[in-house]
């Protein structure tokens, strides 16, 4: 939690009562590999800040296949924001790919923090903008880049991730088959 507080303090003046409030709506958790934090089809009330390890959010299509939306490593947030903001059941599953440490927040309370502590307004807006930028980049990359280029970008974004993930996780994040991923890797080695 100290790391997150430090991050927040680097961006705004955090009053002691705001810090106390953050502690009151959060819980630090150590999770084991394979643990599921959010399950498709359930109500979502929590959001998670990752302090170590690696998590993955994915949807399951009607044929039962998984499609990875994102990986969350240290300093990333992860949840099903569609479910939180629409009050619908989760369309995503969030699971731990390694033993991980997270700080769990009640999403609605965290969302409403700026009502009590207005200094959080610009902080939250900034976070949201960064999130939108990252999503737009992901969509545009998906539309215009080759699979090999997307894989290169993926490795830059998540430098150490390959030790934590299975090939099918990465292939399903990039929207390619596992064979294509293997081919791209072979080509990379040749270069």
């Amino acid at each position: 939690m100290e790391d997150l507080i430090k991050k927040i303090k680097s961006r705004l003046h955090l009053r002691p009562e705001a810090e106390e409030f953050l502690y009151s709506i959060s819980k630090e958790k150590t999770l084991s590999k394979g643990e599921v934090l959010i399950r498709q089809g359930q109500t979502v009330k929590k959001t998670f800040f990752v302090t170590s390890g690696c998590l993955r959010s994915y949807c399951i299509d009607k044929n039962g296949k998984e499609h990875t939306l994102l990986f969350a490593i240290k300093d990333w947030w992860i949840s099903d924001y569609i479910a939180i903001h629409t009050d619908e059941l989760s369309t995503l599953t969030v699971e731990c790919l390694t033993e991980s440490k997270v700080i769990e927040f009640n999403a609605k309370e965290l969302d409403g923090i700026h009502a009590r502590f207005p200094e959080f307004e610009s902080y939250q807006r900034h976070n949201l903008e960064r999130h939108v930028v990252s999503l737009h980049k992901r969509i545009l990359n998906q539309l215009q880049l080759s699979a090999a280029e997307r894989y290169d970008l993926f490795l830059k974004q998540y430098p150490d991730i390959e030790q934590h993930t299975r090939n099918f996780h990465i292939a399903s994040y990039l929207g390619i088959t596992q064979q294509s991923l293997s081919r791209i890797r072979v080509e990379k080695v040749k270069k």
Binding site: Y58, I60, K65, E66, A171, S172, Q178
Partner: peptide, 11 residues
Amino acid sequence: KKPGNISFEEA
């Protein structure tokens, strides 16, 4: 749990 990379029919 079924394998995540294949369909229900394949599983």
